[in-house]
Design a binder for these strands. Structure first.
Lengths: 253, 253
DNA sequence: CTTGACCTTGACGCAGCGTAAACCTTTATC
DNA sequence: GATAAAGGTTTACGCTGCGTCAAGGTCAAG
């Protein structure tokens, strides 16, 4: 039996446009074109289309599908296993997202009642004012780091416990920095733990964490003398060491 | 402090192009443009960007993000809950995909050894030849149904057990059709079970199941006398009843 | 004064089609 | 046999979220 576009479309449950597109990109060509220019598909094409749709269901790209079905030597099992891995990663990513959304909803809803939240925000503002007194009022003007963090803390409705935990983390970071620096190797285990904690610390106030931003921040620490002074007060040269550890941790260096 | 595009990009870990794009679509406009036409961002914009990036991490579309951050009356919690549902659906879908891929890999690898597979394919071909003798050789030419199925069965490396299970299902379907028809109501519970089993039966040989294709097939049953004869031999009018039940099941009617 | 780094505005490209526009062919009906 | 409906064709823009040139202006450093 032979099928026109519409017939085949109905048979397979896809649109006519899709069939034309598949013809256009060479994924599925009709067996012939009749005298009026109509696309005519035969049995072989129907079978092929079924295979294509199967792989498409698995969210495999059309390009990849072409490889799979056009090249009989193509290792289908390998391709599927590869794809399986991708799906797993996707799911892990989704799980992460869901956890974050849950947390955010939670902090919006329960967590801290609105009024207390306001008070708490003020409390944090005070903390930051102190910081600014210590390291100069310009620090805020220069990079806006604290303000950014404050904004995020507000956004996420960070709890008071979280805030304390975050402060504790920052103390740990200073201790670790000292110990790690003593090893002299930013790739050492302690130094890498330092970098990991620094990331954890960041994520408290930085829900939009990214490697690039983390790396950028590390570079900023070194570039800006106020930050350098802040981290170097623990150990001289500590800032650069921290940056190196972070860059190695991120796999950039 | 004020930032140029590059500065803000580094600070936030996104690209300059992205910032220009956000300006273009009105998601994040710079606080001002300097005399040379440079985009200058202020503190407020930094804060906004952090929020934008947070929502973007959650895979919320930029359009939606605009609503969330631009309209203070917008219910953020609701938006997040909605989004959470979407993420859940996505994950369920992913789980389905992964199961199918696993099955496919399994049938490729273990399942049936190649030689046996070949034999088995031949076995199925015989089955189909019989069908064709019964309902006329043209049935294959007309819609290619069986051939499509055979192709899929080959593709998925359907096991002999699956094949038997499928046959059993088709018997059940005939029995259910009789019972459901007696109720006279294609929306009845039995009729809907019939439709569900029909779907299950289809999915054995049809990995690329879609509502549209299912509905199309149902219509085809009624339109093609050979199929009509096949289903009507159990109960007169059974084919139309089956179609109606399926359409209701699919929420089309 | 010349680099080189940064800025600007276009404009194309990507995946996978949906959706018109403008026009022919086939099929069904009167 | 005429006509209208249904289906066919190609061409081409739109959508998302930017990456990636291209062609040119601006600015701080040497």
């Amino acid at each position: 039996m032979e099928y026109t576009v519409k017939k085949l479309a109905q048979l397979s449950g896809i649109s006519g446009r899709t069939l034309r597109y598949y013809d256009q990109i060479g994924l599925l060509k009709p067996s012939r074109i009749n005298s009026s220019g109509y696309r005519i598909y035969g049995q072989k094409e129907v079978d092929l289309l079924q295979q294509i749709l199967f792989y498409r269901e698995l969210e495999i790209g059309l390009e990849e599908i072409m490889n799979i079905i056009q090249d009989p030597h193509f290792n289908q099992t390998e391709a599927l296993k590869d794809h399986y891995k991708k799906l797993m990663q996707k799911r892990a990513h989704l799980d992460n997202l869901m956890a974050t959304v849950e947390k955010t909803i939670g902090s919006f809803e329960g967590g801290i009642p609105m009024q207390d939240k306001e008070k708490f925000a003020a409390f944090k503002e005070n903390m930051m004012d102190e910081n600014e007194k210590k390291y100069g009022i310009e620090i805020r003007e220069k990079y806006g780091e604290d303000t950014v963090n404050a904004s995020n803390a507000k956004l996420r409705g960070m709890s008071e416990e979280d805030f304390e935990a975050m402060n504790k983390l920052s103390e740990e970071i200073f201790l670790l920095l000292e110990q790690a620096f003593a090893t002299g190797d930013p790739a050492s285990e302690i130094a890498q733990e330092l970098a990991a904690k620094h990331k954890a610390w960041l994520m408290f106030s930085w829900p939009s964490y990214s490697k690039e931003a983390h790396a950028g921040l590390a570079e900023m620490y070194v570039a800006d003398e106020r930050f350098t002074a802040y981290y170097d007060k623990q150990v001289a040269g500590g800032t650069k060491f921290l940056r190196d550890a972070i860059l190695i941790y991120l796999g950039i260096k």
